[in-house]
Simulated scan of single mutants.
Amino acid sequence: MIKVYNRRTKGYEVENVAGGKFLNALYGTVPGKMGLELLVKRKFYSYVSGVFCDSRKSAGLIKKFINSYNIDVSECQDEVGSFQTFNEFFIRKMKPHMRPYDNEPGKLLSPGDGRMYAWKDIEINKLVQVKGISYSLRDLLRDDSLASRYEGGILVILRLCPLDYHRFHFIDGGTCSKTVKIKGHYYSVNPAALRQVARLYCQNKREYSVFKSDNFGDVLYIEVGATSVGSIIQTYIPDQRVLRGDEKGYFKFGGSTLIMLLEKGAANIDDEILEQTEAGFETRVLAGEVIGSKK
C-alpha cells in the first residue's frame, strides 16, 4: 500500500497502483525476481509493450483505463473518441487553463504531474532512493564535473504513475542544452521496485539536459525510463529560447520519473513537501503548481 500526501486536504490518500499485485510479485518473490531479470527489465519487453500501445488494436483499452483509474477526461484538449491508439490517449495534452504556469519570476513550479519527494542541502554521493538505499549523482550522470556543481543544492524527484498526465514542462524561461542519452535497463520506478533494486535510477535508461533558466540558475533535468515506457520523447529545440510552462517532452506508456536538481542557493523548497519527504511520504502535485520560491 502506497500512501501519498494531498496538500489540498492535508491528509493522505492510498494510491491506486496499476498492476499492483503483479509488481509486488515481480519484485517481492523469488520466481518474480527471476522473471524480472530474464525478461521484464530488458528493452525487448518494453519495446513489445510500446509497439502494442502504438497500434490501433490498443484503442479498446482507453475507456477501461479511464474507468479503472477515474481519469477526468474533461481536462483533455481533445475528445476521447479522437484517440486511435492507447498511446495517443496516454500522451494526451491538457487544456491550457488546466495546467497554468504563473509568470511571477520568484515562484518555483512543478515541471509535471506526479508524486514528489524533495531534499535540500544534498550530498551528491548520497542521494536518497528510499530509506536505507542511496546512489551517487556521478553514477547517474557519468559526468563528475557536472555532478559536482549540484553539491549542497536541491533534489526533486517526480514519480509519474500510468494514470497521470505524462507531458513535462520548463519551470522558467531560458534555454536548454542538447539531451544526453544513457542506455540502461527498464526496471519499474514504483516504490516496490525502489525498495528492492539498489541504485535503480543509475541502472535504468535515462536522459539529461541542462536548462539555463532566467531565475533559478542551471537546472538539471533527468528523465528516467521504466518498464513498458516505449520512449522518452524530447519535443523542445536545443539552445532555442523557451518560456515558462513550455513543453519539454513526454513519456509514452508506463510509469516514469523526472529528476530535477538546482544548484546551492538557487531556491527554497516548500517546507510542507520537505517535511512529508522526511516522514517518508510523497506529495501529490500538478504541473505548474508552486513547490518553492527563489532564494
Score class of each variant (00 low, 15 high):
residue 3 K to C: 15
residue 7 R to L: 12
residue 9 T to W: 08
residue 16 N to T: 15
residue 16 N to I: 12
residue 23 L to H: 02
residue 29 T to P: 00
residue 29 T to I: 02
residue 33 K to D: 14
residue 41 K to F: 08
residue 45 Y to P: 11
residue 46 S to M: 10
residue 54 D to G: 07
residue 57 K to N: 15
residue 59 A to S: 10
residue 61 L to V: 00
residue 61 L to T: 00
residue 65 F to S: 00
residue 66 I to M: 02
residue 67 N to E: 13
residue 73 V to M: 07
residue 84 Q to A: 09
residue 87 N to Q: 04
residue 88 E to W: 00
residue 90 F to W: 03
residue 91 I to K: 01
residue 93 K to Q: 14
residue 95 K to Y: 09
residue 97 H to C: 13
residue 102 D to T: 10
residue 105 P to A: 14
residue 106 G to C: 09
residue 113 D to E: 12
residue 116 M to K: 06
residue 121 D to Q: 14
residue 127 L to C: 02
residue 127 L to D: 04
residue 127 L to K: 03
residue 131 K to V: 14
residue 132 G to Y: 08
residue 137 L to W: 01
residue 139 D to N: 06
residue 144 D to G: 10
residue 150 Y to H: 07
residue 151 E to A: 07
residue 155 L to E: 06
residue 155 L to C: 08
residue 161 C to V: 15
residue 165 Y to V: 12
residue 172 D to I: 04
residue 175 T to E: 11
residue 176 C to S: 08
residue 179 T to G: 05
residue 181 K to F: 15
residue 189 V to L: 02
residue 192 A to P: 07
residue 197 V to N: 01
residue 206 R to N: 12
residue 208 Y to I: 06
residue 208 Y to K: 04
residue 210 V to N: 03
residue 212 K to Q: 14
residue 217 G to S: 12
residue 224 V to M: 01
residue 225 G to K: 01
residue 228 S to P: 05
residue 231 S to H: 10
residue 238 P to G: 05
residue 238 P to K: 02
residue 238 P to M: 06
residue 241 R to G: 12
residue 244 R to D: 11
residue 250 Y to F: 05
residue 256 S to H: 03
residue 257 T to N: 04
residue 261 L to V: 08
residue 262 L to E: 09
residue 267 A to E: 04
residue 271 D to K: 14
residue 275 E to K: 11
residue 281 F to A: 05
residue 286 L to F: 14
